[in-house]
Design a protein around this nucleic acid. Structure first.
Lengths: 215, 215
DNA sequence: CGAATGTTTGATAGCACTCAAGAAGAGTGG
DNA sequence: CCACTCTTCTTGAGTGCTATCAAACATTCG
């Protein structure tokens, strides 16, 4: 039996690109309606939703290779917002092109399935963090998560990972107030769990971090 | 251009069924490793994950027509637990059968994509509830959500929807303690927002519910 | 060098948690 | 039909984690 669980090859997407653009930090990765599907080429973005009164829940991070607007293009409806955190290079894809859903390889059409299944898997972890972990556990988990994502994306350098997230972002990931996030982050940092500076995070011991995160 | 956002036809799945079974409340919908993919035929189930110390986060509800184990079968790894809430009839599907990923229709292979995209969309809402809403808002949201799901599944009867969920389940959806869930649920009920009895929930006004949920 | 954004700190209030125990309901077997 | 058990629901008291308010400090950037 073939292995369904391996990461598929993404190369075929190059043929489907309809445009490119660099998005500045703090702005949308899907600038207009017609460009409803974009691929992150470099940089880091967030996906979030808003309640009526303005509260923001961040639902996920996007690293190079991931798609903005995928689930929205498949089921329609409002969906989430996608916003660049660093400068982000994006490629626009034609979501109506049938080749998009027919990736080549031993499992035709497996690419989008894989991306979506991974998104579900990641959201499970976010949900557990927002719902079950307290402030300290949640922040430790988030740092650990950022580390893992950076590792997969090959962005670890000299024992540090990119950490371009403001404390407000961390707060909106975990559903905490900014003030409490600050105090907890600071305490964990003083405890030597990690050190954040210059947009990067240095981790002493991943195992220690995992433990603090109740992982 | 064709419409990608419409719910696909599920009929073709009948050919892929490898077995059937009735699962009792409180037991797993995926009884063994080899049967890693199952479709809910009747009844209601939950999907959840556990932290190391036993805390449980419920990630979603499963109504008839939805699949247990889908994202796990695509990316491998630990994944979630699937547990029946009512008595549940399930059909086992062969997740290695390539026909599964080649649903017929004007958009071949669209079925699983649609299911996964919908799951992402639903999880966004859960995340916002666990992360941003307070106890009263969260419970109002959950009742509203259960109503919507029942409506889609055609399970509304005499202005009431099935509500087979214990307060412990509600607590684990929202990340609240059982005691606080009970007190808040009771208060909202006394305020006339809804009435739960006999495993069903009656809703006075959906608009009122939406407002209480900050939707 | 302002202006804007992001970080830090202290004080106070409140929502939600924990502990503890009783009441109510559902299911079981005699 | 009635004990018995188990699960679920309910209630009260006390604690504490987290939110809110307010303001100062640091940093970035034009």
């Amino acid at each position: 039996m073939e292995d369904l669980t391996r990461q598929p090859d993404f190369g075929y997407l190059a043929e489907l690109v309809t445009g490119r653009r660099v998005v500045a930090p703090g702005t949308s990765c899907l600038p207009d309606q017609s460009q409803a599907l974009a691929r992150i080429e470099t940089g880091i973005a967030i996906r979030y939703s808003l309640l009526e009164d303005g509260r923001r829940q961040i639902e996920g991070l996007l690293y190079p290779g991931e798609l903005c607007g995928l689930s929205e293009s498949l089921i329609g409806g409002a969906g989430s917002y996608y916003e660049a955190v660093t400068a982000v290079e994006i490629s626009f894809l034609d979501h109506a092109d049938t080749r998009l859903r027919n990736s080549p390889g031993e499992h035709p059409g497996h690419h989008l399935l894989w991306l979506l299944a991974r998104e579900v898997s990641l959201m499970s972890q976010w949900l557990a963090s927002a719902g079950q972990r307290n402030a300290a556990e949640g922040i430790a988990w988030f740092v650990h998560h950022v580390w893992q994502r950076a590792e997969e994306a090959g962005m670890i350098l000299r024992n540090s990972a990119p950490f371009p997230f403001s404390q407000q972002v961390v707060a909106d990931v975990l559903g905490l107030s900014l003030v409490h996030t600050n105090k907890t982050l600071r305490r964990l940092s003083e405890d030597g769990l990690f050190r954040i500076s210059g947009g990067r995070v240095h981790v002493r011991s991943l195992a220690q971090l995992r433990q603090a995160a109740a992982l």
